[in-house]
Design a protein around this nucleic acid. Sequence first.
DNA 1: CGTATCATTGACGTCGGTCAATTCGTGTGG
DNA 2: CCACACGAATTGACCGACGTCAATGATACG
Lengths: 253, 253
Amino acid sequence: MSRAPKVKVRTPSACATCPIRGRALFQPLSQGEVELVAHFRSEDRVVHGATDLYRQGEPCSELYTLFDGWAFLYKLLEDGRRQILKFCLPGDFLGFQPDLETPRVHSAHAVTDVALCVFPRPNLLHMFGEHPKLGISLTWITAHDQALSYEHLTNVGRRSAKERLAYLLLELFYRAREVTEPDSEGGIFFPLTQEHLADALGLTPIHVNRTLRELRGEGVVELGGRRLKVPDPGALEEELGFNAHLLRPRRMI
Amino acid sequence: MSRAPKVKVRTPSACATCPIRGRALFQPLSQGEVELVAHFRSEDRVVHGATDLYRQGEPCSELYTLFDGWAFLYKLLEDGRRQILKFCLPGDFLGFQPDLETPRVHSAHAVTDVALCVFPRPNLLHMFGEHPKLGISLTWITAHDQALSYEHLTNVGRRSAKERLAYLLLELFYRAREVTEPDSEGGIFFPLTQEHLADALGLTPIHVNRTLRELRGEGVVELGGRRLKVPDPGALEEELGFNAHLLRPRRMI
DNA sequence: CGTATCATTGACGTCGGTCAATTCGTGTGG
DNA sequence: CCACACGAATTGACCGACGTCAATGATACG
């Protein structure tokens, strides 16, 4: 039987009052611009957890704003090895790539049930044609994603397993705290498995587990029961040389 | 004594006849647009090899098009570990980042002597204000860089040393062949040391050396004397699941 | 030539991977 | 309410890819 998805819903086309608008793609827009965006948006869509949103090789017909839930982007090698490229949280914009005529270069997967705002590709190009400022927003988002991706590359390429894991958990802790309500103890909802973490960090799940045990033992993180807490984020930030700037969206100009 | 740099030169503001324009940032521009770009460009600059173009932490006052020579972007950890993020070849656009008010988030280093077109930041913003199409070009470039960066992340996170090295060499071979003249044997000029390769791949120079020996032994690559040749790129592409699409610039729209 | 940088090689150590159980937790059905 | 099933977490024993340390060669340049 098909269970009812657990996600936030809202009345369609309610961009003007969208609860995540302050954090989303089109944050710095005026009232009129928001209406323009609402006009080009085609629908809200809900996708169940543990399913793909799109797959590499498919045509690139839509783009999305993640409205609620957790997802990630990933690449698959021929033999099944998987690299997770980015974890997506509410407010993130997914599905853009340099050549929209070309098949998708990576896949996207819903971890939890997920709610999406859907932008059909032709509408999007229209939209940018009619409103250059939206193009600047998109440039900003892409550049921001790239900075994050460079950070991950550095993490995977040049840090030990323990550093990598601590770094990723800290990043996700900060990002999740920005877009969802922490629980009474300051912990966040955290739906990822150790296998997800492994595939993002270039490790095996087994080694993630061992490393996690160390971090827990040192009191650096509390993780379990779909909940994550970093008791002293400041100290960890310091210790890892974590650059929190990269997570704080600011205006480009 | 300061030796004379070995790079291509040209008369300033000759954007219209720039030999790399077909491959550079502003490729799809009209005559008038090129003149606009030429107007906002401030100068040509030559930088000696083995020096930094800019460093993380500095203010972000200029952006560049690489006109001649090889460079790379990198991040440094506190203890000196280095991750190379991207190798830059003629035609590449450097120095853009999401928040231009904020200090640089990575550094750039000239491998060889290098010639640059310099765009002062304030001019750039002006330029995009006056000509939206340039903004689209920039978005395209950023998205393209990001796709490359995701590819590198996958490479470093999920491939063996041998696969990583072969993959990177193939990529550089293709990219270099696009923008410079191959020698009579089909090899390309290749100024990187094994340490550069190591820092891009998340390996040690020693292990790069050993891995290179294997690849040479199998006839997969010829590398030495600042020259690289991949005798059968097609076969290697096949074997690695290399996606050459990502390297071929196409129009976004 | 003398010096510096890069490439190369060998011996050895370790971080993280592999394989294989066992345990835990949650949801399901009897 | 309990038995069961399934995925995820956990643990141990062992292995191998890659790192570390140290020495030697090859090249280029002043």
